[in-house]
């Protein structure tokens, strides 16, 4: 039976079972999806914040912060047999829902730090739907490489 796996805020999930769907709802958070060219292995991290403020507790969520989140997901995929040179990424989220002058622009910083961490690991970003002012419901199909991105009001596209 294909499973619908919810990737909770600050967490990451990996599956190699074709038919499984990894899913999250993203506002300012970033959904980092990593896929393997040579196998169905697919992972998603639900990144919350760009980096840890000095003095704050580390907590126990693997993907709370962008840098450690990227590393944890890549390590998890490599532990399951992926080679780093076969990996590629898709990015979603990092929106600014309430427009300017209200909340800090965490979304934009989340995207910047996530991109930088991927660049250091030489993992290319093949598609993205980031920024803007709308939340996104992301559904990642394991095995097909398709990522369905839905926004409020029912419009959807595949990246």
């Amino acid at each position: 039976m294909p499973r619908r796996i919810i990737v909770k805020m600050g967490d990451l999930e990996v599956s190699d079972r074709p038919g499984d769907v990894l899913t999250s709802v993203l506002g300012s958070c970033v959904g980092l999806i990593i896929m393997d060219r040579k196998s169905p292995l697919t992972g998603m991290a639900h990144i919350m914040l760009p980096e840890r403020t000095k003095g704050m507790p580390e907590g126990n969520r693997r993907a709370k912060y962008a840098g450690p989140g990227v590393l944890s997901l890549v390590r998890e995929m490599m532990a399951r047999g992926s080679r780093r040179e076969d990996l590629y990424a898709k990015l979603c989220g990092g929106a600014r829902l309430f427009g300017e002058n209200s909340l800090q622009n965490i979304g934009e910083r989340n995207i910047a730090v996530t991109r930088a961490a991927l660049r250091r690991l030489n993992i290319p970003i093949l598609a993205e739907r980031v920024g803007g002012e709308t939340g996104r419901n992301v559904l990642v199909e394991v095995g097909t490489g398709r990522v369905v991105v839905r926004v409020s009001g029912d419009s959807e596209e595949v990246i």
Binding site: C29, N101, L103, G135, S152
Partner: peptide, 19 residues
């Protein structure tokens, strides 16, 4: 100053929770 958004509940709530 109040700001307004029309969006998915989880996206809205989580965005504020990040603060």
């Amino acid at each position: 100053t109040p700001a307004c958004a029309a969006d998915m509940l989880e996206a809205v709530v989580n965005t504020v929770l990040l603060e």
